[in-house]
Amino acid sequence: MDQPPRHPTTVSRKGPRELVVTRRFDHPAAAVFAAWTRADLFRQWWAPKSMGAVIAACEIDARPGGGYRLTFGEGAEAMTFFGRYVEVTPPHRLVWTNEEGEDGPVTTVTFEDDGGRTLLVMSELYPGEVPQDAVAGMEAMAGEQFGQLDSLLAARA
């Protein structure tokens, strides 16, 4: 029987335009930040394994004005997500755009260090009301993604 995660992932709305995800990690902020900004680490945890999604390509240039590009699948089935980093403040804060559609949110992730542990808060601010499919998708995926991130961090500790 699966044990519940030690630190659950919460997904909530903060007003009509913002979706917020929080999770605690028993790892320093610098380690959690690195897993978000290094392509070799990011590709190991971002795609939920239960969904069979595979990151075929991952490019991350985590600096203000730099960009990211993630491709899932191959050929006609491939989906690519991309955007620009607006703010990068190691190991405390990342802000990026999501440019694959007109209604893409701006994502902000903060990494609050708490004596070797980290409180991660990810906020997605949409130009209009948060689409219902974004809420459902985040609720379906975030717990597994962050569980995979926690496992990666534990293996690297």
Rank of each mutant, 00 (worst) to 15 (best):
Ala53Lys: 11
Arg38Trp: 05
Arg43Phe: 11
Cys58Asn: 04
Trp46Met: 11
Gln44Leu: 14
Ser50Thr: 12
Ala57Glu: 14
Met51Ala: 15
Asp40His: 12
Gly52His: 09
Asp61Arg: 08
Gln44Gly: 07
Arg63Phe: 01
Pro48Asn: 07
Ala53Cys: 03
Val54Thr: 15
Thr37Trp: 01
Pro48Ser: 00
Arg63Cys: 01
Asp61Met: 05
Ala53Trp: 14
Gly52Glu: 04
Ile60Ser: 04
Ala62Pro: 07
Lys49Val: 15
Asp40Gly: 06
Trp46His: 15
Pro64Phe: 01
Gln44Tyr: 11
Gln44Trp: 03
Trp45Gln: 07
Ala35Pro: 02
Gly65Gln: 13
Trp46Asp: 06
Leu41Cys: 05
Arg63Asp: 02
Ala47Met: 05
Trp36Gly: 14
Thr37Gln: 00
Ala56Gln: 04
Val54Ile: 11
Pro64Asp: 05
Ser50His: 15
Glu59Asp: 07
Ala35Asn: 08
Ser50Leu: 13
Ala53His: 13
Gly65Pro: 00
Gly65Trp: 13
Ala57Trp: 07
Ala57Tyr: 13
Pro64Cys: 01
Gly66Trp: 10
Arg43Glu: 13
Ala57Val: 06
Pro64Val: 06
Phe42Pro: 03
Ala47Arg: 00
Val54Cys: 13
Ala39Lys: 02
Asp40Ile: 07
Gln44Arg: 09
Ile60Met: 08
Ala53Pro: 12
Ile60Val: 09
Trp45Glu: 01
Arg38Cys: 06
Arg38Gly: 02
